[in-house]
Design a protein around this nucleic acid. Structure first.
Lengths: 201, 201, 201, 201
DNA sequence: CATGAATGAGTGTTCATTCAT
DNA sequence: TATGAATGAACACTCATTCAT
């Protein structure tokens, strides 16, 4: 019954460590295949200790998703802020690229957010989370481009949704089927974005 | 050890019933969360009975995927055969619509094929199955359209992959986020297809 | 529901075939590890068919043991009948050899009779079966040898039991530990029998 | 999920209790017939608790056998050390008695070691374990007795193996057939040992 | 006589979780 | 805060057996 006070650390720090381990494992092995024990082993603590930080397994997932949503949104916001000097079309294009880039650089998070079906777990409402806030940014960029006349005037919602679909399509396929015989990634992505834009003009 | 049920039915019929229940459950709860007992309960048989039809849980999945692949491919082939009188562009457009339509009409199967990641379970080879055969049909249609001059000449692989991405994007988003505030589905799909095509011209 | 009347044969013949398969399997894998299915597969019939011949798994064992007991006893009786011309000591020695020989030539049956612990299954009484009838033959041979004066007069039961112990010891050890670094079997057995006899003189 | 018992006890103590229950059950019903649940019931714990002490069922067996081997060997070593003043023949005789006595006083362990065939379970190597180390002690005693001239000079291996057989025979028969109509145990054992010795002179 | 369909009980094992320390 | 002890529920799967055909 020796208490291994191996590391005294801040609560948040510990939570982060748990979440980090959880992300890794959830993605590598799938949520249901990851046991509390496994997470515990990964961070070198006992399984029970985790319960001091999260009420149960599902709550880890919830926190983890919130974190992922925030990260995703931040990424898009950063991209849309940058470079106010260029035209609306360029900014839109940059946003599209930012979306794809986030997915390809953070495939784990992108999967958690938009691919993995963790839906059956009651993870918060689906509207009010950051998952869909990114879409609003896209709509804004589209609207601006239309107003500036560089995009054909049309229902912005329709256009945004179509664009989002194309974005999600390329991102998720590249992530999920890495073994497929894709063209050079960079080339494919550029081509795809150009086609999206030019399809809207 | 009283035997309660005795609904002697054709083997194939029973297998189909099991598979149908399995599809429903796999998608609703995820493959690893679905136990043999759950499937059995769903079809109102004992868990052991299932073993009279499938050697084990994975074999259910394998059969189920094979079936889904075949259904998907058939769907595309049928669409591509129809109406040889129209031009290559129309045929391509028809193929694009057929893809999306399959997904929206068979969301279960589409998810199994392209969204749920049951890949890490050793389900046959991943290249040579019908999942990717559909892509070849698309490439053919694209090539023909290019040869007919109705599509800008370019690397057919690049174009096809971009198109596939857009198809998968709209299909999977509509399936996975039915609660989202989408524009009218029919309108959105038509717009999306038109945009895809016009982006390639 | 096709009935495979693969082989029409006499009931006894079939029972024998089942028992033969069962012996093989029981010894190779241990009684509890042998399932009805396995036996069935071995004889190329369906599992249910066996129930037409034996009420249940245990009854197979019972029959099997009865058969083994009989075979064992016959073997000893045959040996003790032979060659009435030689002296009592020779006959005793022959009996001892016969015991060991049976064991070494029928290790399966010997194990079933004297080593395997199938005792917890209520297999008939322990006194009245042929397992111990063999012992009576031994006692007879000992008594005769004493009467003829070729063995030191003593309590025949005591002597017989001691002899039996030595017989069982060599037989069971050779059977159970075939990997042990034994002397040449023939030599060891002969030496052992001679020692047994000479210890009684 | 209410936790009913809470008998915090020393780990070793608990392990011993589990092993004790396991020995009893393994012998009474045979290893494969004993389930973790049965063991648990026997010690009035839940089945899962056992997994806090042993990784799995086989590990219980392994520990149990190791313990039995050690106990057996110790018993023989103790006997052979004692009384260096007496002659080699007396010491040999003492060793023979010690062997039998161990078996009769620890029938459970003796059965586990030499009768029950738990060998096909991969329990450590079969040659290098203490099961056969006891035999070496016997060989030593025999060799010494020969050198001292109190036993006829012969191949010590042959003599030892014959003696071991006789030892095992009497021990295992007395253990396995307690219902048999044996002579008085003490008398039988003494007679048997004397006969063994005198047969070697 | 032989079988396929069906099942309840049971197996070893894992897991999330609780509780007292 | 961290932990070890403990547990009920569940899982994939096997088995002996029954029943109607």
């Amino acid at each position: 019954m020796e208490i291994k006070k191996r590391r005294i650390k801040e609560i948040e720090e510990m939570k982060q460590e748990i979440i980090k381990a959880a992300v890794r494992l959830f993605l590598a092995e799938g949520y249901p295949n990851v046991s509390m024990r496994k997470i515990a082993r990964e961070i070198d603590y006992s399984a029970t200790t985790i319960y001091n930080y999260f009420a149960n397994k599902e709550e880890i997932l919830i926190h983890l998703l919130k974190y992922a949503y925030a990260k995703f949104l931040n990424s898009l916001v950063d991209a849309s802020k940058a470079d106010e000097t260029v035209g609306a079309l360029e900014r839109l294009k940059a946003a599209l690229h930012a979306y794809i880039t986030f997915g390809l650089q953070n495939p784990d998070y992108y999967q958690l957010i938009f691919i993995e079906n963790l839906h059956h777990l009651q993870v918060a409402g689906s509207k009010d989370n950051d998952r869909f806030k990114g879409f609003l940014l896209l709509t804004d960029a589209v609207t601006e481009a239309m107003e500036e006349g560089v995009l054909k005037k049309d229902n912005p919602a329709l256009v945004s949704q179509s664009l989002w679909a194309s974005l999600h399509g390329i991102t998720s396929l590249l992530i999920k089927f890495p073994g497929f015989d894709w063209c050079k990634e960079e080339e494919l992505v550029s081509f795809h974005v150009e086609a999206m834009i030019s399809g809207m003009k």
